[in-house]
Design a protein around this nucleic acid. Structure first.
Length: 272
DNA sequence: CAACGGACCTGCCTGC
DNA sequence: TGCAGGCAGGTCCGTT
């Protein structure tokens, strides 16, 4: 579920319900995540007011009075706003219960996500310190990409998915962005022209903005736990469309190929 | 440093 | 119907 648009949609959906409220209770039912949830999390959070909710890359940063709760949703995580009395279901690992009778519940079947506490500025945390710029940061531009790519012989798709190059471009949107920028995903990063990188910068921004505009994938309403199909799926031009005719050229069939252990989709006609 | 494979997990879908 | 196998939106780590 979570690529950057879903994380941002989650942030926007959740924030109005919890920012300004104070933690009344923290229930952790499962500590085993990508990194273990701190044993003393409940003690640390108790009574603290949530001051703000930010996003950096695919991390959600819950800014409390005395530090930051860092949350990552991994491959299968989600956050929902519920009544504190709602019985937990399988894989509902953590509840943050606020004094406004809101329960923020973390579910993550695969447990690739994480929930950590830091008293330091979150940008200094080892997980965040070495991340590349946000897609909308002016530092993310064609010159930057071309310069970085100089030492990169690997596929450009892996290059744009590298969080130390730019954050937030996951597997779906990597395929989508490269298709819009007319760049073949297996082309060595160093063989992509500056002009093409300029197109890629625009394409990444457009695709992500568009997806956020559609509410990410599923959850428009965070106070219920419906949300299955995902409107943004209809907007995808190549992802999961292997064998279909390319919407760009109307002639070639979309191909699929594993690149860097991830399935990738592209038009052999449009993308070079 | 960069590239690559493997690891971490569960659920769901497909095909036999 | 049951079950094995493959695949899934992420990222870190170790090895070469």
């Amino acid at each position: 579920m979570p690529e950057l648009p879903e994380v941002e949609t989650t942030r926007r959906g959740v924030a109005p319900h919890v920012v300004g409220a104070r933690i009344r209770d923290t229930r952790v039912r499962e500590f085993r995540m990508r990194q273990p949830i701190p044993r003393d999390l409940a003690t640390v959070l108790q009574g603290q007011r949530l001051v703000g909710l930010e996003r950096r890359a695919k991390y959600l940063l819950f800014g409390f009075e005395r530090g930051t709760l860092i949350v990552h949703l991994g491959m299968s995580g989600s956050l929902r706003v519920l009544s504190p009395e709602t019985p937990p279901q399988a894989h509902d690992h953590v509840d943050l219960v606020f004094d406004n009778e809101v329960c923020l519940r973390l579910r993550d079947p695969r447990r690739f996500g994480l929930m950590l506490w830091t008293a330091e500025p979150p940008a200094a945390h080892p997980l965040l310190a070495t991340l590349g710029p946000e897609p909308w940061d002016e530092a993310f531009n064609a010159d930057y990409l071309a310069a970085l790519a100089h030492s990169r012989s690997g596929a450009v798709k892996n290059f744009v998915m590298d969080g130390h190059v730019v954050v937030g471009v996951g597997n779906i949107y990597a395929s989508e962005s490269l298709h819009r920028a007319l760049i073949h995903p297996t082309r060595p990063a160093r063989r992509v022209s500056r002009a093409r990188y300029a197109s890629l910068v625009s394409a990444v921004r457009e695709v992500l903005e568009s997806a956020i505009g559609f509410g990410g994938t599923t959850l428009r309403d965070f106070t219920r736990d419906d949300g299955k199909p995902g409107y943004f799926r209809n907007e995808l031009r190549v992802y999961d469309r292997g064998g279909e005719i390319c919407l760009q050229c109307g002639k070639a069939e979309i191909r699929q190929k594993v690149i860097g252990q991830r399935m990738s989709y592209f038009c052999p006609q449009c993308q070079r």
